[in-house]
Amino acid sequence: MRMIIRRLSLYALTAWVAITVNFLLPRLMPGNPVQTMIGKLTGQVTAAEMNAIQLSFGGSFKQGLFAQYFTYLTQLFHGNFGSSITLGAPVGAILRESVPWTVGLIGVSTIVSFAVGTFAGALLGWTRGSRLDSLIPTATFFQAIPYFFLGTVMLLVFASNLHWFPVLGAYSQNATPGWNWNFVGNVIRYGELPVISIVLSSIAGWMLGMRNMMITMVGEDFVLMAVAKGLPRRKVIMHAARNAILPSIANLSLAIGLVVSGALLVELVFNYPGVGDLLLQAVLNEDYPLIQGIFLVITLTVLCANLIADVVYLALDPRTRTEAAV
């Protein structure tokens, strides 16, 4: 219990540091977002207009840094991320719109890739040297191809030419978004190809990691003991797999942390309306509030993922529960 509290406070501290850095970074950069935007506007801008623009993006810049920081924290606490410069809407609302798409797509892909890859890896490790081993070079091949290329080719072949999958976007243009089976089914249909492409390009890592750990575990005494105990083969494999999976769990937490940020290429190729796409637009348009908002979301997801992984790891490996002497 004490350890959980300690970990939680460590995470709270990390979150605070991340938020602060997120606040400071744009202010350390040369230039001024309002000036940049005004520079882009053609024609004259009156003083009143300038003031109005400044007010709409978080008040006056004449405030001291500390006062700004305080305002920032208060606003953040109320869920106010400011307004996007290019889209004109509140950043919070924009993120609420796009984050679920990315989390859904990449999250599902990551979990499918992890589950299938780990299962295959466990089998490969157990049956080392069998014909199944040919799966490894195949999987590594797909991982070695740059994702951008793999995604484009798959889109071209399976969607454009063979028409097995719908082409672009997250759902059909005729569908009305809403929580009904029709729309959810449509979203799943549109998600299939992106998910398959991501799984293909990432599965080798899970498979190899699990296979190698499995081979190490198979040589351990407790696996020999499991055989000596006359356990059915399935249970013997479980003895080994239960231990072999531990490093994979640690990797999964890192992968989940990258769910929000790692989506850029996928969303670009499949024209998926997620965070990656949004970030690209924000960067191209120098939309500071939006960039800041996205960075914050990414940071917080990574933290949450690590927290979850920590808890899962504690549950899975009793050895990590022993507190180090302080």
Partner: peptide, 29 residues
């Protein structure tokens, strides 16, 4: 056969290894 062996293992022939630490599965009570 494997099946026959499973039947006699532990119920008729059991084994104790040198290192009990590695012979016990570390993640099981």
């Amino acid at each position: 056969s494997e099946k026959e062996l499973r039947k006699i293992r532990w119920s008729h022939v059991s084994i104790v290894l040198q290192s009990a630490l590695s012979a016990l599965n570390p993640v099981l009570r």
